[in-house]
Amino acid sequence: MEESIDRKLLVRFMQGKCNAEESILVKKFLLQPKWQRALDELLDEDFKNFEVDLPDEELSNAWNRRFQEKYIADPVRPLWRRPWLGYAAACIVMFSIGLYFFNTNKTAGEKQVVAAMLQTLNPRGQRSRILLPDSSVVYLGAESRIRYPEKFGLGNREVSLTGEAFFEITKDRAHPFIIHTGEVQTKVLGTSFKVDAFEGKNLSVSVATGKVQVSKKIAGTDSLQSLAVLVPGQVVKWNVKTQTAAVDIVDAEGVRDWKDGTMTFVAASVSDIAENLERWYNVKINFEDRKTANYHVSLIVKGTDPLTHTLDIICNTTHLHYKIKGHTVNITKKGG
């Protein structure tokens, strides 16, 4: 008989409250393509209500019955994903000379509300912690920029990001939180996740806790195309050139640790690691032989450690040599 999974367990997993045994069970469940497709559809439906609290017994049982009937009772039925539905934008935000405007209709007349826009820009070698008007916290990475209103209005809570940041969003069902990153937007209610959105680079959204919806704006319209609905331990990667999205597994703990200054790399190219080190330590890293930049290593980088500590690990692992002169690091083959 096919295995199913209980909604309460999924919700606890999304909230990061599962024990080790339960986490293994859920992750095993998510790795099965059939159940991943089924879960995607159900999460896509449930996301309209943004339910992240533990459901009551009746709601939980109803969800379990729906899951059983739709994906287990009829083994012949193919599990093709239904076409993604676009979501109309909840409000249109216009940024102009540091101000944004939105309309309310509390009275017969139209009232215009104006709020100042704030911006935090981190140069290379600098990271910062930002407290937003709703008490949400943003850990902004080096060479990154975020724009947000001095005070959130009556509609959605909206910010724009260029670069990378970890978000801890204060829960507010009535006012979804939206991060704009070019043509892609990320929508949540109250959760923690990391966004990588550097200009000209592929974008990724990694979830530590809660549920996150990532969508793409459809050019020339106010509609959105859903790219993914993510739960803890999942990441969606958006390829700018091919305009395609792929969902993968990620270490949720590693995602959380980033805000505390720890970067985790798994089978990453030396060039990708170097790019991150350049931002974090405000240096320029050059490779004498570009082929060496394509070597792959796995390591954990702590931002509090000196740069030389990380370079020692990389070079000892790949049989390379480095030399630092001012803010420039030159990497060569040993003996070169």
Score class of each variant (00 low, 15 high):
238 W>M: 14
313 I>C: 02
53 D>P: 06
159 V>D: 12
100 Y>T: 14
59 L>H: 06
101 F>V: 13
133 P>Q: 15
270 V>G: 14
80 W>F: 00
109 G>V: 03
311 L>I: 01
322 Y>V: 12
186 T>H: 11
313 I>R: 00
24 I>T: 11
241 K>V: 13
274 A>K: 02
254 G>A: 01
209 T>G: 12
258 W>H: 04
17 K>H: 08
177 F>M: 03
37 R>L: 02
266 V>F: 03
313 I>V: 12
218 I>N: 00
38 A>N: 15
162 T>W: 13
37 R>K: 07
276 N>V: 11
118 L>D: 13
319 H>F: 13
280 W>E: 05
36 Q>M: 09
199 E>G: 06
176 P>M: 04
257 D>I: 06
50 F>E: 03
52 V>M: 15
161 L>C: 08
32 Q>W: 08
230 L>A: 01
10 L>H: 03
35 W>L: 07
311 L>C: 05
149 P>R: 08
257 D>F: 06
215 S>M: 05
318 T>Y: 15
292 T>W: 14
288 E>N: 06
88 A>M: 00
128 S>W: 08
98 G>W: 14
296 H>D: 10
145 R>A: 09
126 Q>C: 10
8 K>L: 01
239 N>F: 10
256 R>F: 02
255 V>P: 11
262 T>G: 01
4 S>D: 05
78 P>V: 02
190 G>E: 07
258 W>A: 02
274 A>P: 07
336 G>A: 13
197 A>P: 08
323 K>L: 05
77 R>I: 12
38 A>K: 09
21 E>Y: 10
298 S>F: 07
150 E>R: 12
